[in-house]
Design a protein around this nucleic acid. Sequence first.
DNA 1: GGGCTAAACGGACTATGGTCCGTTTTCTAT
DNA 2: ATAGAAAACGGACCATAGTCCGTTTAGCCC
Lengths: 208, 208
Amino acid sequence: MVAVTRVAAMPEPVLLPLADTPPAERRDAARNRVALLEAAERLVAAHGVAGVTMDAVAHEAGVGKGTVFRRFESREGLMAALLNHSETEWQAAVISGPPPLGPGADPWDRLLAFGRSRLETTIVHAELIRAAGRASTRSTAAYSFIAMHVRYLLAELGVTGDLQLLAIALLAPLEAPILDQVELDGIPVDRVYAGWVDLASRIVGQGR
Amino acid sequence: MVAVTRVAAMPEPVLLPLADTPPAERRDAARNRVALLEAAERLVAAHGVAGVTMDAVAHEAGVGKGTVFRRFESREGLMAALLNHSETEWQAAVISGPPPLGPGADPWDRLLAFGRSRLETTIVHAELIRAAGRASTRSTAAYSFIAMHVRYLLAELGVTGDLQLLAIALLAPLEAPILDQVELDGIPVDRVYAGWVDLASRIVGQGR
DNA sequence: GGGCTAAACGGACTATGGTCCGTTTTCTAT
DNA sequence: ATAGAAAACGGACCATAGTCCGTTTAGCCC
């Protein structure tokens, strides 16, 4: 599907496109992306998520409205981009931060730390997550990372079965829409966490 | 807080408000509610959920736009009202329909039937559920019914622990937002169901 | 540097959810 | 039956997400 059109022998040009790298952003485009994200962050800080209107972001960044949509597709896309930022930091903590969240602790302790951390992160970003709508889960980047991590920990713990689905089931009660329901039953966070630990121990099996 | 203003003895009027019944809908209001719901259903059938704009519903029902919002609060509210209808039928099947979904079968079989049915219902109504947004879960009526039913079945099965949270955990993977994620991994329904059965058996415990 | 092309830009324009308020209808008490 | 009050009505109006297209700019090759 990719160019194999060149025929005879000749020295290749310096850079050949490795995968099909999307052709690299033009400078003005890159500049505006950053300006827009910073503007959006400023607006969130100043007026909350609801204050982030597309017009406001455009104006704050000093660009036209069309540009905002060209860069981020939609309001949800913009919100997802904002989320992505903090999500990336969190991933770093899991991959290379201190235990028990990071590597070094035993898998069960890591799983517990993971659940707690995930729960708190979701609560903190609840508004943003809601505003990102499908874009947040669709940008599979973030979600598939956490799902993969849970699969890995379950495997370490010797769990057998359809790990992908077990991971989904274990993560589901920590997702924002589910926590919404929980919240309006007025269940406190610690009890939610305790319930999740119970769930995890049932999934992992007898030894806890 | 309700009228105790009348002082002396006199025969009470025929109907005294039992609890504080919300003062009963005026006739025009009731008529319009029905007209609007029917109009909305017609529009869904004809143009899909996306075709249900508030202007269109108002026009189709032959009322003003303000009336739509007065009756249903918001577009989400209207969608939730549509959902509520089918949800009610489904509840009837659980309460008094034939086993194994309805009463009569043993709890484990009922639980399995419940999961399957819930999964399919959610998939069928996915679009509507999404359009109803928070209103669907906030109208606790529907959700708290299914949560209660699961708690009941878990209790029948002798499960111990925080049944409310276990019910939430068991239901979570069947909720629309979670199924969205699953869907974009391209996991087929039967496998999702199999995974859920596995989850249920882990939650219920050794005996299955 | 000069010129060419594709990409990016900006802001007017559209569609739609949601609000407001002057008018009309229903209900109740007399 | 009538009057008065409370509730409902309708549609003009507002705010904001998203589109479109004529204009500008970055990158590239000579």
